[in-house]
Design a protein around this nucleic acid. Sequence first.
DNA 1: GGAAGCATGTAAAGTGTTACATGATTTT
DNA 2: AAAATCATGTAACACTTTACATGCTTCC
Lengths: 194, 194
Amino acid sequence: MALKPPSYLMLGMLRMGARSGYAIKKAADVSTRFFWPTSLAQVYPELTRLQRRGLVTRSEDPHGARARSAYTITEQGESALLDWLRSSAVAPLQFRDEGVLRLFFADALPGEDQLALVRRLRERARAAEAHMRSEIIPIAEALDEAGTRFPAVVASLGVDTYAYIEAWLARLESELGAGQRGAGETVERIARAL
Amino acid sequence: MALKPPSYLMLGMLRMGARSGYAIKKAADVSTRFFWPTSLAQVYPELTRLQRRGLVTRSEDPHGARARSAYTITEQGESALLDWLRSSAVAPLQFRDEGVLRLFFADALPGEDQLALVRRLRERARAAEAHMRSEIIPIAEALDEAGTRFPAVVASLGVDTYAYIEAWLARLESELGAGQRGAGETVERIARAL
DNA sequence: GGAAGCATGTAAAGTGTTACATGATTTT
DNA sequence: AAAATCATGTAACACTTTACATGCTTCC
């Protein structure tokens, strides 16, 4: 069976210097979390599978009386990772977001509740941007200075995109707040203004 | 047990005029697909669950010899939908995308392959934008003229966001293509230019 | 000494996708 | 007459999350 994105996440993190399952999870929480969240309950069984396939090796690495497994990516693992990075098939761009789904059905609400919903979504985008800026960007920049540049590229893309969405929603909010105009007009006005 | 987003998708689509499970799936494919994809194998059992809870009613609506079930949203269903739309808890903004995950690990690749990857991601953003513009926007605009405005709002947000991402990647591409500069410099240059 | 964090895992439940299966109607 | 599309569903599998369970080490 083919490897899936979570498998490559493990391989990539090991390649970047993570050694334990726990460390992989920690690293994911401050880096890939916004575009590929992971839970510990996924990490451990996946590492075992990768070991069985010979893509990683495992060794005992106890810390005092506390047991710990250290994992290393093998040559096979590294070439699997590279093949994936180079492969031409990219899954189509799509995401799943409850907030946008609500916005889609917002016609069912009276005007004031529509406005409240847009405000909430905007606040959420702002919070996501702020979190990335303070928690993720500094770590990515430190990596960048050490010669690993793409985590910073991805973090910047994320922050900039969230900022863009927040600005878009801010404009929608002021259009909605300004009173009841034709909706087509609203959308065109936002598009022109950006 | 609480209703989940897919349940509200069904309720919302019924409220907007869809009558059969098949029609809900069709409608989702040309509207919510980019931020909440659905499969038929989800639709039918979910409609049955909603019926058991009294949020929708089902009636036989055969077309010739072909069996067909017609569903209608009940008052209870409608108020469940409105409660959800009005509730203050919004799931945190996050998505899951294999393409961005690859970009994150792109340091493992030689320069030319990095460039090829960025090109692929950019092409994918362009394709998603073009698809939305030609297939989804016209339908949303027709709805808009009939007085249902938010599908058009969401479609515009999607198209504009994809366009923004494509422009961002185009700039990254030209920075990478221009030769090997410091990565921090690259990211800052893009941020300034946008 | 207690709290916080390190570290590893299992079990259960829920969610979602793909493939399978069937057959009618409409369009070319 | 064939192909496309309408229409409904089931079964198997894959994937994820949440909760449970355990116990060590480090810091205050």
